[in-house]
Amino acid sequence: MTESYESQHGDVSNLELTRYTPESRIRHPISLLKEMWHDLKASRELAWRLFIRDISAQYRQTALGYFWAIFPPLVSSMVFILLRSSTMIDARQIGVGIPYPAYVMMGATFYYLFVDALNAPLKVITESKMILTKINLPREALILSAMGDALFSFTIKCILLVGIMIYYGVSVYWTVIFLPIPLIGLLLMGTMVGVLLIPLGLLYKDVQSALMIATSGLIFLTPVAYLPSTQGTLGHIMRINPITPLLMGAKDLVIRGIPEDLPTFFLVFGLTLGFLFIGWIIYRLALPIIIERIGA
């Protein structure tokens, strides 16, 4: 082989080597972590594109468009307001200090950030099934774009919430500047549960149906429209409900100041990050197996 041919066509050994073997990647944790980091970086551009695609596609094929983002918290809030007016909810217990509709709307808006983040991963992945079974892409991108979808929908809800707060003349505490922290917590916690459900949810459609029922029931077990009660079964559930510290923390930062139970708050936050990481690993390892089962 002549030298000029060598330089033009090059030696193949300088090209990146990819190997596919039956062995589980978890046996090589270091290289697994490197791959995860590499794919996360590589998926930013794609995630952005997918996000833009989802947003514009959503807008194009619906009559009401972005209204669907504010619909769920609005309906839930009205339910609570009705319940309260018919004294189903004890008014004394709600010593919230701000007009009730604003309080409920705030709780519902924050709660639906969690719910949207929970539903988005499975939804995005199901919608991308076609691409997933045909193209090998950095799969982290789908999760990132799912988080983007949830955040986008939250932003729209926030516009409504701010409008309502202004209408009722609610004055917010200076601690509102820390609000992004519990919100990120809610986003990550929702994403974490959503990602953990992907493997099973892709194989069995039952998961998606169960999820719908679960999230519509969960709103009553979470202190969305009232303070967490201290007694009874409901009080007990609310105390162990991991959403409670994040949600109450967010609400406190807006209308009361620094939340009292900071250790619990950060414990939940830390656990969320930990489980999200575990969910990410499971997601990576499970996806090739799932694609094989659903992509025939």
């Binding site: 090209l15 190997r19 039956p22 197996i289 992509g295």
Partner: peptide, 24 residues
Amino acid sequence: KLLSGLIKPDEGEIAIRGKIQALI
């Protein structure tokens, strides 16, 4: 699908150098 890394082999090995683009 195995070559493009979409699914995992049950036996054996694939080694690929460079970027692969599959039009499946």
